[in-house]
Design a protein around this nucleic acid. Structure first.
Lengths: 159, 159
DNA sequence: ATCCTTGCAAATTGTTTGCAGCTAG
DNA sequence: CTAGCTGCAAACAATTTGCAAGGAT
């Protein structure tokens, strides 16, 4: 990755300041946990991790902070399989990844594919749209028994 | 499309019979409305349309029937933008389409792209998975003002 | 002082479930 | 009769919101 948490946090602070908003301790902790995570945490998990660092942070604040970060495009929301949203720090540069979810164990693998992205652009253009975003999730099965991802926690391949 | 509603309904009836289940009037009406729709209705809309034909059908029955149809792969669920699920009759043959949602008005355009699908297979294979399903939604803006899709109801290009 | 922010609890929303009555075989 | 099926209302789960108190500028 190209940013350290401190760099990223500074950017966030500036961004907030520009809107008369503040980087409160709570927001900082939430961002920190999110940044440290491999991504794909849901609110419950996030809240628990946050409370481990600061026991006073409320559920609502987690939600509000996530929304705040999302509004500033610093966090990306994904709703994979169950109805519950999962969050990850948005790509810092222009990189973008998509997800493959294991139907057997729910393990999430990330991947990049520029050919697909190019075709998506092409499709949108052909239909008269400017592509502004996309969501793509592949669902697969590894076919091995036991599933090698079982009990594996989401691991993020970075840098 | 390759099936008329009656054909499709016959298949459904057989399918249900095989599981000691019945094609009740309520289920028939729900299926009929769904079949006649251009797709992408949410439960609320569907329920209203159904009640126009049979005022006694309850909300729960709509949900239960949708789940039933989905379990039999006759209906496909999509959760586009808001948290609410939208439903459409599943592809009758091997055709499959994806969606492009207009960020301005929510209008849903369908498209097919076999190149993308091939690449998705490729990605999954390369990662050691058998691709069993995928969800892909493109979000776009047409850039024209007023948005030509505004107030347009979802239109499905069929046969 | 002003206004952003917070934690809590209550409210909302989308969906599921328990149950008594109904219906088809 | 014995299932499956229905409508209703209550239950649930995820998320949002109102509000009084706290904190920064």
């Amino acid at each position: 990755m190209t940013h350290t948490f401190e760099q990223w946090c500074g950017d966030l602070e500036d961004l907030l300041a520009r809107n008369q908003q503040r980087l409160t301790p709570q927001r900082r902790v939430i961002a920190e946990v999110l940044f440290g995570q491999d991504g794909h945490v849901n609110v419950d998990e996030l809240h628990q991790l946050v409370r481990a660092k600061d026991g006073s942070v409320g559920y609502a604040t987690v939600y509000r902070t996530l929304k705040l970060l999302e509004d500033h495009d610093l966090v990306h929301t994904n709703t994979f399989v169950d109805g519950t949203a999962r969050y990850e720090i948005a790509a810092h540069d222009d990189e973008h990844h998509d997800h493959l979810v294991c139907k057997d164990c729910g393990h999430i693998t990330e991947f990049e594919n520029h050919d697909i992205e190019r075709l998506q652009e092409e499709v949108a253009t052909k239909l008269g749209f400017e592509l502004v975003d996309h969501a793509m999730v592949l669902y697969g099965r590894c076919g091995r028994d036991p599933c090698p991802h079982r009990d594996a926690r989401t691991k993020r391949r970075r840098g």
